[in-house]
Design a protein around this nucleic acid. Structure first.
Lengths: 125, 125
DNA sequence: GTAAGCGTTGACGCCGACGTCATGGTCAAG
DNA sequence: CTTGACCATGACGTCGGCGTCAACGCTTAC
């Protein structure tokens, strides 16, 4: 299939697919006229990339998953390199959450100090 | 005082100060030779900006706080416009935290599915 | 033949908060 | 007089994941 069809089936733009290729995440055979030519496996690859992007992975993070799939594994996350990324990502997310919680209480404290009574505490009428 | 001294006292770079000025957050008188000339009040303004930036505010977010200080208030957060920004920011942070929590559980679920037993659950030997 | 609708590559735009040159003026110390 | 430490403006670079032209070629339908 050509790039437009893959794009529709994977729910991405052709531009995104070329960008993935530019970063070595997907490859494409070329037809005689120079058009990119994809197969079913590529649909799966792009789907994997999208599901990872959707939960906050970068394209770099997605690379080991794609290579895991290409090496024949049924799941992109079943290779040790992918598991490493999974763990690192969980740690990053936890770190961000802690950071946000700290910022949240900082902001709430600043608001309470600058404007006592401005913080609406529900449940205390 | 000149830009270098303000920068040192406020813990920022001269470049940052020029950038703040470019965005209308701070202003400076000019000496005869064209040098920017600041006073003590500016130290306070920059400190306010920095403390807001530190908790994740953008320069746009900081604007009402700066104007609040300039209008004579002792606290940058005691003006209604500032309070509006405080509330909006708290809502944004809460939204991000929820998003991160959702992503975290998504990632954990993907890891659990792709590699059962890879999730180390402490307390279950 | 021609218009529509695909495809190609290349290159700039975006967003935020500056860092980092490049180029040149100002001023005090030696 | 020169060095060095400051100052000025202006402009490009950074980071990610594309969007959005531009300018062109291919294919199919009419």
């Amino acid at each position: 299939m050509r790039i437009g069809e893959l794009a529709r089936r994977a729910g991405v733009s052709p531009r995104a697919l070329r960008y993935y290729e530019q970063n070595g995440l997907i490859r494409a055979r070329r037809s005689a006229n120079g058009y990119r030519d994809y197969d079913e496996a590529d649909v799966r690859l792009v789907a994997e990339i999208r599901s990872l992007i959707a939960v906050g992975f970068t394209l770099e993070d997605a690379r080991p998953f794609v290579e895991c799939l290409r090496s024949g594994h049924e799941s992109g996350g079943s290779c040790p390199e992918s598991v490493v990324v999974y763990r690192r990502k969980l740690a990053e997310i936890d770190s961000e959450i802690r950071s946000l919680l700290a910022r949240r209480s900082e902001v709430a404290a600043q608001l309470a100090e600058a404007c006592p009574g401005c913080l609406v505490k529900r449940g205390e009428p």
